[in-house]
Design a protein around this nucleic acid. Structure first.
Lengths: 224, 224
DNA sequence: GTCTATATGGAGATAGAC
DNA sequence: GTCTATCTCCATATAGAC
């Protein structure tokens, strides 16, 4: 038996979890900037230093949130790619994400400030690369397993572009104040149909030069 | 003679300008977050309270920067729309912007955190609407004055989409660490050609349903 | 290894004297 | 309009109890 399995009701793992959960709750309730390390510690029933013992900074809490999300999302994303239609497969991925992040919508809003790829917490940073790559992997899987003719010159880049598209949708969702995020739902439906149409259109013979330029564009953007 | 013309070497307008210029210089040199109101006041040769007399908050300095930029950019943007080719017209607008903002590239990076449309300093906020609308107006002018067939159903939305496209380019530029932002230059050239091609392609007769969907998409996004 | 209590130093902002 | 003095609050560091 492995001693270090699930967090018990006491012990270091449980304390760590308790702090993280408390922090996430407060971030969501009061906003990220308005929540102080003092409040987190107090609400978790311990002294300030104790929280700092487990998380050396407020940003470390955010990083732990990213990692936990990636861990918990993995199986769910993998388990939802059953259809063969690309549109269904992509929609399934999106639905899992929205569902999972729903309790953290406000928090994600606060975190979306990290546009600088140099910042460790940016979705484009070196620091978050492992998380990002695993995530892109699910879009690769969505593309791979679909019965859908993809122009071969586009194929190597498609997953990454779709991942970026998905980031855009999440950003829109985070700031969507319509009831139950109805506008995002519409945007997903309309943009998804459009994305699929565009890929299909791009496969037309006379589109070959356009495809080449798109690929060049993608390379320019991602070569940094 | 109007008494309130240009800032003199002394007087309230001069003091205000001095504070703003000092702040912008420090923001650029040391970073926005690392620069304190104390440093700004000290560097401008006055007490902290004096700086707060002119600018009630650090964000007020940012807003003043936005307003000044809009004012100074206006004539330059208007003066550069001489060609009749849409591609040249758009490139001209972009060049003026990059040129003007070059000394503030670092600062813009720090400001790009304001993704929340609710935040007053966001480029999408209610607060910055007048600035934004005037800016969109230059893209309308760029489209209007071009000898270029634009599908009539796209036309009402094109300027706003191009404005958004331009915001994306600026964001890329802000974080482009290639020498002399060479990658941005490439991105501009390639994406500009692509944008023009796409608009042309969208005018083909059988593209009518695609156009309709694009318009729907734009409406969904901007209806908030 | 885990945690409490306390100290440090700096930030944005303000009140009220001059 | 400009200043000094001060308020309030924070992230973070550390000393040392258990």
């Amino acid at each position: 038996m492995n001693k270090r399995t699930l967090p018990r009701e006491s012990g270091p793992d449980a304390t760590r979890s308790l702090i993280l959960n408390t922090a996430l709750r407060l971030f969501q309730e009061r906003g990220f900037d308005q929540t102080t390390m003092r409040q987190i510690a107090a609400e978790a029933g311990m002294a300030l230093g104790a929280a700092y013992y487990y998380f050396p900074s407020k940003d470390a809490l955010v990083m732990a949130f990213y990692e936990r999300a990636q861990e918990e999302l993995g199986p769910r994303l993998a388990g939802v790619l059953s259809s063969k239609k690309i549109e269904h497969r992509l929609r399934a991925l999106l639905e899992v994400k929205f569902e999972y992040f729903k309790p953290y919508r406000n928090l994600l809003g606060a975190l979306s400030r990290h546009t600088d790829p140099q910042h460790p917490l940016s979705p484009f940073s070196e620091n978050t690369r492992p998380i990002r790559e695993r995530d892109v992997g699910f879009f690769e899987a969505a593309v791979e397993g679909a019965t859908f003719r993809i122009p071969p010159d586009l194929k190597p880049h498609l997953a990454r572009v779709l991942w970026l598209y998905q980031m855009g949708l999440v950003l829109f969702w985070v700031y969507d104040h319509s009831p139950n995020q109805e506008r995002t739902r519409q945007l997903v439906e309309k943009s998804l149909a459009m994305v699929v149409t565009l890929i299909k259109l791009s496969g037309l013979p006379f589109m070959s030069p356009v495809r080449r330029r798109v690929v060049e564009l993608v390379l320019t953007i991602s070569s940094g």
